[in-house]
Write a protein that binds this DNA or RNA. Structure first.
Lengths: 236, 236, 236, 236
DNA sequence: AATGAATGAGCGTTCATTCAT
DNA sequence: GATGAATGAACGCTCATTCAT
């Protein structure tokens, strides 16, 4: 509530600066390129100061992932408010997700990092909470669109299937496809010529198979996409 | 052609032993828990001997992943030969994949590791080739089932979609779902009560949306699954 | 300008201590006897601390050589200021060189080490600069005496010969003789009964052959040497 | 006395092959590039076989140095038999030495290696004997020329100076100059523009100062050098 | 709160040498 | 004599973390 003092502002800025530099290290040299000495050097403070902000290296990784997740959550919220029917709004979310992956391919890596190794064991409950709340926010936004579709009778979910189950499916195929795209050099050799297009196609197939109307055959996909580009993603 | 000498056998066994122990380390303590000193200690040989088998730590990781991939490839081949129609055969592959994930949840991690950081840079071209050939084998097996379905007119793919594109979709959703299941503790809190079931459901939805006959509504899913358990996975 | 804090003093002292111990190792066990672990152990600090002072093993070697070279440079400067004619001053330098070799036979080895293998490749430009500046200082001091001799017409160099060329000759014969003395056990067997005397004799011959007056036959060598011992080397 | 069996020949050849390869390693990658594994690999035998020839790595170094020394000894013997007066013959030896250094700059390194580190301590008395006998042969050849000069009254050595003392002087200045040339990148910066010429000049000065007739001013240096090139070094 | 020197366990890797076959 | 797998001590170096100032 209180206005932050200049001192507090400086401290807050430094925290952002640390993350910025850490991000550069990971992006340019991988996880092993992240190194507390170099961070301290580059923010022109001491290592001790860095440790005042982040209790250990892993906390930095988590914080980076949280930044990414928050950035995406904001985008998702914008996309979910796309003017149009529920099917168009879910499409906007999917499209925003693809856009995010293509525009910030590095951000993807930080979420991946969360999923490996012993990151979790070393971090504070507080940081973990942040991650969870981000996940929940994203889930809530997308599930919200599904619920709206049900409310407007654009969609009828089968018995035993929750809105979250459907979101889980979309999440899974997106995450899986992006993981493969990000790491498999040989996708083309394997016969998948345009994986991004294939992903989009499969998502529409899933939505169609739930009879989420209008079906993908019943509206002009491309013109909707153009509108999303303009109205959500601010692309020309 | 020649019979391996006892000596050669011993060496070969040690290689397997190294991998076995390395696997335990990674499973129990993550990538950073893998440590050449301890491996040497536990196989009761010297570090030099370990290095005679694997030129560096990363080669061990790759070898573990290849073991996993080969194991899965064999399973996929068996599943693809399931006695029945094409839809039942693709179902068998999907079911085998789920089974593999549930039965050997750790194996999954080694494939994940391939996708990170500097593993690739340090390994020999020969090892990388092995990985690629495993990927191709799996892809070929599943795409083969798709091709058979097309040949028997159980399935008509839309213009511009290759069998591999379809496999990519199935691969993506499986990998994504498994990734989330393996790492997100809070899936239940997010509202996804039974993710494994949801995955299975989505896969059927995708296949249905391609009109791969018989549709999931047209056959008795549970009894087929029982047969797969018995005939492919050798479960009682 | 500022007075060093006790802390800084301690650090500076440790640097000297490291060099001292490293020197002992090299002297008693050769280059391969120099080992970072043992140094750390013996200065009762950690390896990391040693590496805070010297970025790699080779830097220590260079630093040892620089110590030696600086020590000699100071001695040369003192000797070059010996009260007397130019011929006596150059004699003082030569005598100081012999003295240095006999008094600190080990120091000689560190300069030799500079001349081998991969030392240079791993060291910082800054350290290399130090070495070069030491070399130049020594060269300048001795060439300065030659120039004074020319100015006072004690010496006329032949056309095409620079003062530095003459110094190079003296340097070569001294270095070569000392190298042989330091390494050839069998010099006596080869028929060289008193190599140190022979070196001194040859140096005088060279100077005589340039007609650097007074010639060695024209002054009392032994009494000059006594004076050098007393006035430059502080020997009784 | 007996003719070597084919087997023995093969073994002897292998010994030469080992040395040849070891030499290449040292030349191209320095002392640390010498490695028993690689030698074994490149002679297409096993490490054990290499060890049958040379009891340890250091023995190989010594053997390489001995090869070099023998090569030079032969050259010196040829040079000492140059047709001409004693002064011309000693000049031929000096010239041969320079030639050897310029033509085979790498050979020089092996003799240097003998002078450092702990090579001697690990080698057999037999190998050391070989080194010593090579040294003696070289010394004897050159001292022989000096003795001939004395016999023919081209030279009168001062009281207390042996022929070997004179050779020691020549040896020292040559070795020293070559050492500096081989290792000091900054010789030009130090003001020594043409060290090889300076070395030659100093050697003549030394010989002149002993009144070894004819003095360098009394004969045509260049035409003699041409003859040496042709008659001793077989240069066109 | 900030500093940065100190820590030291840990790491991956090398390689001369041995010895059973 | 030949082999080459096995050895294991040694090595140089890193870096997250601590803590006295």
């Amino acid at each position: 509530m209180s206005t932050p003092t200049p001192k507090q502002l400086q401290i807050q800025n430094r925290e952002l600066k640390i993350l910025e530099i850490a991000r550069e290290h990971v992006v340019s040299e991988g996880y092993h390129g992240l190194n507390m000495d170099r961070i301290a050097e580059e923010i022109k403070s001491s290592k001790g100061t860095v440790y005042n902000h982040f209790g250990c290296k892993e906390e930095i990784i988590i914080a980076l992932a949280v930044q990414t997740m928050e950035k995406r959550a904001v985008l998702f919220q914008d996309a979910a408010q796309f003017k149009g029917g529920s099917r168009q709004r879910i499409l906007a979310v999917g499209h925003a997700n693809s856009y995010f992956f293509q525009k910030f391919p590095d951000h993807f890596r930080f979420e991946q990092m969360l999923r490996i190794d012993s990151i979790w064991e070393k971090t504070s409950a507080k940081r973990r909470m942040l991650v969870k709340s981000c996940e929940m926010k994203c889930m809530a936004v997308v599930a919200g669109v599904v619920r709206d579709a049900i409310a407007t009778e654009d969609l009828v979910l089968p018995e035993g299937t929750s809105p979250e189950d459907l979101v889980f499916g979309l999440w899974s195929i997106s995450l899986g496809a992006q993981t493969i795209m990000a790491s498999s050099e040989s996708l083309t050799d394997l016969g998948v010529k345009n994986p991004a297009l294939a992903l989009r196609f499969h998502i529409q197939k899933i939505l169609d198979s739930f009879h989420w109307t209008p079906l993908s055959t019943e509206f002009d996909y491309d013109s909707i996409e153009d509108r999303i580009d303009r109205e959500v993603l601010n692309l020309s």
